[in-house]
Write a protein that binds this DNA or RNA. Structure first.
Lengths: 200, 200
DNA sequence: AAAAAAACAGACCGGTCATCCTGTTTTTAA
DNA sequence: TTAAAAACAGGATGACCGGTCTGTTTTTTT
């Protein structure tokens, strides 16, 4: 045979494949939910095969756990925790976070909600492993806010700082739930306006 | 044949059957989620048959919508709206609501979360009908709180009343999400303590 | 270079799910 | 009383899902 009929030749890229599967799964779980997404959906959207997905994630649960621990946790840290920690004032950081999420929601067509909240709600009761993974992210977030609220000149005492951190996280999660149901960013803005009165 | 071998004789009780199916479905959807509950599960738990369930609810979606509109809406009204409307002060009504839910969570073994929030999160993106049904309940709740916050001597202006109502609903929903993930009533109590500072 | 391990491909299977369908019984309408 | 409708019973069905399994290709190890 002449050299014209060259086969596509496979190139192994384990890390890239794994990462692509995780990205696609995180996106589908976020948009359709865990239970409404089949591994076949993931296989097709990732342009992978059943064998490849099974090689990296033996079960759907393993895939779900990896999405939570490697994608959702990272996103929460990048969008919710770091900006607040690095802001000059806690209050401005938190309000900016709410505003930026609201802005982003209004840019997109659909409000798909908070990935952490989505998966936590759907899977917390189904499986303890999922629940612990989701809870760890909530706790990490809450802890970072608590510390930040206690630090600095206008630092709060331990108890109110913890309560306030919980309230900020809860208001955000709940506002996202309402935003998802109403397909509007208004709940985010309303909560931010009220949190402003509460934050030091 | 003698009278001893009497057949069980069926008794038709359409309303009772329908109501029993709805009760069971509401309970299962709440504890396991909509997608993780099969209609067979409902049939068995309700001591009914596939034919009976299908007669009253032709599709699973019809059953889900009926649960939201006839059970979840009623529960939200009974546990979250009416007590606040009938309370002497808005603040005491809302704080009492948070406290009573927290108390109830601690009495039970498992925190199954807020039924409205659970179904809204799981189904809002899956189907517009579900989303609208869930949103209507959120809106009804939010509207009742807004009105109550505007009324009376210490009445708020329209804008802050609406914002505050949204914040109360969001804080509750978010706190329930955190409670579900942590299997603890603490988030409810923390939020209530902070809302106290916000409510007139 | 040879052998072993990792990475991927893709068919296959048992089980489940939502829905449909054909009867039978009960109730209502005429 | 008779006809029609509503209420219920329960099996059948086709699609899909998650997991498994066997085989091939690529990469690493020795």
């Amino acid at each position: 045979m002449p050299e014209t009929a060259g086969k596509p030749k496979r190139i192994n890229d384990p890390q890239g494949m794994r990462s692509r599967i995780l990205d696609v799964a995180a996106d589908l779980f976020q948009r359709r939910g865990y239970n409404s997404t089949s591994v076949q959906d993931v296989v097709q959207a990732a342009l992978a095969t059943g064998g490849a997905v099974h090689h990296h994630f033996p079960t759907k649960k393993a895939l779900g756990l990896a999405v939570i621990e490697e994608r959702v946790a990272k996103e929460v840290n990048a969008t919710a925790i770091q900006p607040v920690l690095q802001a000059i004032r806690v209050k401005t950081g938190i309000l900016a976070f709410f505003a930026s999420v609201a802005d982003e929601l209004e840019r997109n067509q659909a409000v798909t909600g908070c990935p952490l909240n989505n998966l936590a709600m759907e899977l917390s009761l189904a499986d303890p492993d999922f629940r612990h993974a989701a809870n760890a992210i909530f706790e990490n977030w809450r802890g970072a806010l608590t510390q930040r609220l206690q630090a600095g000149g206008s630092g709060l005492a331990s108890k109110p700082a913890g309560e306030l951190a919980t309230t900020v996280v809860a208001a955000y999660s709940g506002a996202m739930a309402m935003a998802k149901a109403s397909q509007s960013a208004q709940p985010l803005r309303d909560c931010a306006a009220q949190l402003e009165k509460l934050l030091p």
